[in-house]
Simulated scan of single mutants.
Amino acid sequence: MGAPHWLTLFGLILAAWVLLYFMTLPAGMGAGGHGRGGQFWIGHGAVTPDLAGYGRVVAMWALMSAAMMAPTALPAFATYDDLSHSGATARFWPLVAGYLAVWLGFSVIAGAAQMALIGADLVTGPGDSRSALLSAGLLAVAGLYQVSPAKEACLSKCRAPLTFFMQHFEEGPWRNGLRLGLVCLGCCWALMLLAFVGGMANLAFMGLATLIMVLEKLPQIGRWLTRPLGATLIIAAIWVAATGI
């Protein structure tokens, strides 16, 4: 993974996390000595009830998706890179682009959902839940989905990328990237929506969620994680609903 395309990918992932950091800083921290580039992004997570606000929300979701989901797909990217042999770089970026295109589509939908929830006063501008029932519902949906056949079917493909790509390799990198993105979306959409519960401005939550999703896609570790995580989320949903916290 020392090839230039891998170093570029790692740099883009790091850049997404850095931008998320600046976007989650309160606008008033602009005088804290950050460079001009950092100051440009500070406060861009602020949401207004208009098209510009929707654009900021979608940008935030897109950055979150890139920062959180690209690391979970690194084993699959590496598998495809190995299969490509000659001309790996030319095939690598269309694969990554197809993968991220799916998550960009998710970001557009998630952004619209966030704006609707803001309008209903169920979440704050930064995307944190104001409603214990909403939080409990999201936790319950995520917990139940963890133990669903759909989740297991998607995870089985994410955990065996060689088999997955061998079945569709002739379709080319772009379509393989789209397929991989859809499978990953099937694995992780419910966990990603827990950002409304954990806080879209909470980098610690994002980091923990990323680690969980990375581990869940590893065959030897993930099989011991998926169902216990589902049970934990369901218990958390019951506790939040009962206590109103």
Rank of each mutant, 00 (worst) to 15 (best):
A70I: 15
I13W: 00
G127D: 08
I235F: 15
V147S: 13
L229E: 07
Y21P: 01
G222A: 08
E171F: 09
V102Y: 02
A120S: 12
L194I: 10
L194G: 11
G55R: 03
M115Y: 07
A160W: 00
L134Q: 11
V240A: 07
A120L: 15
F165R: 08
L191F: 14
G244F: 10
L211Y: 04
K157Y: 11
V141I: 15
Q167M: 15
V102K: 01
G125C: 00
G98E: 01
R223L: 04
L7Y: 10
W41H: 02
G30E: 11
T226S: 15
V47E: 00
G222S: 08
V57C: 00
A76T: 03
R56P: 02
V96G: 03
R179S: 14
L9S: 01
A120V: 01
L215F: 07
H5W: 07
P94A: 01
M29F: 11
M206C: 07
L100T: 12
L95V: 04
L194E: 13
A31I: 10
G137P: 12
R223C: 08
A153M: 05
Y145K: 10
D50C: 02
F196D: 08
A97Y: 00
A62W: 14
A73P: 12
L95A: 12
G37P: 00
S131D: 07
A110T: 09
V47Y: 05
G207W: 07
L218W: 12
F165V: 04
K217Q: 14
L95F: 11
R56C: 12
A116T: 07
L203D: 06
P173V: 02
V108A: 14
L191P: 03
A112M: 12
T210V: 10
A31L: 02
M68T: 06
L193P: 00
S84K: 09
R179A: 14
A112E: 08
Q220A: 15
I13D: 00
T24Q: 06
R159C: 02
V147P: 00
L178G: 01
W224E: 06
G11D: 13
L133G: 10
E170F: 05
H85I: 03
G181S: 07
L162V: 02
Y99C: 08
A195W: 13
L155C: 10
P94G: 08
F205C: 05
S129W: 05
T48W: 06
R175I: 02
L191K: 02
I13C: 03
L185D: 05
L191C: 01
G43C: 05
P219I: 12
L74A: 10
T8Y: 07
P149E: 04
M200I: 06
P26T: 09
G186V: 05
T24N: 09
A67V: 05
A31W: 06
F106R: 00
R227P: 00
W93D: 06
A78D: 04
G2A: 14
A142T: 04
A46V: 13
G55C: 08
